[in-house]
Design a protein around this nucleic acid. Structure first.
Length: 490
RNA sequence: CGGGGUGUAGCGCAGUUGGCUAGCGCGCCACGUUCGGGACGUGGAGGCCGUGUGUUCGAGUCACAUCACCCCGACCA
């Protein structure tokens, strides 16, 4: 199957439908736009959760959980927020079913209508701020630094496996602070947490920047984001951190008594990443043989494949591999011995490659006689004969090297596909081939909209670390103080 | 919600201008031979042809309706 996938730059849906699904990550569910994440795919999510959760805690956050259902009235309290989400809400109107009068199946019991409809959370700002109101009375109660791991539902027009499912899993941090400064620092801190997670764990280089007002989160004063480049040159927003100002505090009347005894509205942030990260992982690293997972997020880091004929050889080889397995496990490496007897080793090789296991160790009678094993690395598909003595150290180094190499590949790819362009005509032509474009923009939503309509490219972000550079907007020629990143995006 | 496409075995598909007992590949089960890169042979199990209503002597095939899914837009993490 993998061999048929050759046009990865053009057709990710083929990956998802024909390759990734067969790689046991996910399958479509009967429910509109939702997906069943299979155990292997979920294991990746658990890895992501584990790493992020630790980073959140290291930055002083704690986990909590808030209700799935939000009373409709909560949504209407913050005007921009409701406008942003109103079009994509699942609404609970009734609480009971009954047997259909015509005897066929069940229908909604019309007498069980809810007094107030409940919204299945598309995000939890409203219900959380309704709760924070009761938690925050004094400056001594601040800051509140909560995160929740949850599912949310957004009834999008169009869904896409991993990238935009109707229901998705995510993490949402919601913090409350006494000062504007503190909240802004938190917003910045968390986008940097995301960026370092992407870099260090996902082997995914990202750009940090600010969204333009039209791309901002509904209800935010500023949205910081990390943007990654996929292998087809399209951009993927991989995480966001919002500075919400006092908008939600005002909407939910959350005031605190300051040291000076004055009542003040609190300042807030929210930030999140979702199962979209799994999609990012797939689209950034995979090749025609299937997934390529960074060792630090791979559910299995090493697979052992015995090569043998008959039961005698199997037990000999198994005995040969067993100490290797133990040695690796002792070093904290996740290992699986694939001793299935119903498929041949060639099949196993192909299957584990498709699943993206970073390192494969195979051994047969020949290796046993020589005291070696065959070590294959997923990122380059290279194979090498390695002595068993010291294999644990060898594998540890190899895993580190693979992690670094995958990042490096992605980074080089992004650099090769990032262009500085000044002419709009040139931009219109070259955007067709994908990539990030550093261009001058006059800062108006009108120009942004015009570019989007004419080229399908959006401003992914105004990079935070870019050096100022006076120039002229590529469309209007009006002055611009710095370049922004344009790209077509998922 | 617009435009296009697809619904036939667990998966991927074929099925002619309507015709007799609905096929193929993969997978599955049994036995045997194999086993250092996706093995092969023989035998076997598995179908209300998405759903409904029509047309017809006869419908997987035609008509209408309906539902679901996929792709391209609009919307979005």
């Amino acid at each position: 199957m993998a061999k048929e996938i050759t046009n990865r730059e053009e057709n990710y849906s083929l990956w998802y439908n024909n390759l990734v699904v067969k790689a046991d990550l996910a399958e479509n569910s009967a429910v509109r736009g939702c997906m069943v994440i299979k155990p292997y795919g979920y294991a990746i999510w658990e890895k992501i959760q584990g790493a992020l959760d630790k980073m959140f805690k290291d930055t002083g956050h704690v986990n909590a959980y808030f209700p799935l259902f939000i009373p409709k009235s909560f949504l209407s309290k913050e005007a921009e927020h409701v406008e942003g989400f109103a079009k994509e809400c699942a609404v609970v109107t009734h609480h009971r079913l009954m047997n259909s009068p015509d005897g066929k199946g069940v229908v909604v019991d019309p007498t069980a209508k809810l007094e107030e409809e409940l919204i299945v959370r598309p995000t939890s700002e409203t219900i959380i701020w309704n709760t924070y109101k009761n938690w925050i009375k004094s400056y001594r109660d601040l800051p509140v630094l909560c995160n929740q791991w949850a599912n949310v539902v957004r009834w999008e027009m169009r869904t896409r496996l991993f990238l935009r499912t109707t229901e998705f899993l995510w993490q949402e941090g919601h913090t409350a602070h006494a000062t504007r400064q503190e909240a802004m620092e938190e917003t910045q801190r968390m986008v940097e947490v995301y960026a370092s997670f992407a870099r260090d764990w996902m082997a995914l280089p990202v750009l940090i920047g600010s969204k333009t007002p039209s791309e901002r989160f509904a209800g935010a004063l500023d949205t910081l984001c990390i943007e990654a480049m996929m292998q087809d040159g399209k951009a993927l927003q991989a995480g966001t951190s919002h500075f919400l100002g006092q908008n939600f505090a005002r909407a939910f009347d959350v005031q605190f008594a300051s040291k000076e005894g004055k009542l003040e509205y609190v300042w807030s942030t929210s930030w999140g990443v979702s199962t979209r990260l799994i999609g990012a992982l797939i689209m950034a690293h995979s090749d025609n043989n299937g997934l390529v997972l960074p060792p630090k997020l791979a559910p299995l880091q090493v697979v052992l494949v015995p090569i043998y004929k008959g039961n005698d050889e199997l037990s000999e080889i198994a005995e040969y591999l067993q100490p290797i397995r133990k040695a690796l496990e002792a070093k904290g490496i996740t290992v699986k011995m694939d001793d299935r007897d119903n498929v041949r080793s060639g099949f196993k090789f192909a299957e584990w490659e498709m699943k993206g296991v970073p390192v494969r160790i195979a051994a047969g009678p020949r290796d046993r006689a020589q005291g070696t094993v065959e070590v294959a690395r997923r990122d380059t598909l290279e194979k090498q004969s390695v002595p068993v003595a010291g294999i644990d150290e060898y594998v540890i180094q190899l895993l580190i090297e693979i992690q670094a190499n995958i990042y490096q590949k992605a980074h080089v790819f992004r650099e090769k596909n990032t262009f500085t362009v000044d002419s709009y005509e040139e931009f219109k032509t070259r955007i067709e081939d994908g990539g990030f474009f550093l261009c001058h923009w006059d800062g108006t939503p009108e120009t942004e909209e015009k570019i989007k309509e004419e080229t399908k490219a959006t401003i992914r972000c105004i990079p935070t670390d870019a050096s100022p550079e006076a120039g002229k907007c590529m469309v209007t020629g009006k002055p611009s103080a710095q370049r922004v990143i344009f790209a077509r995006a998922y």
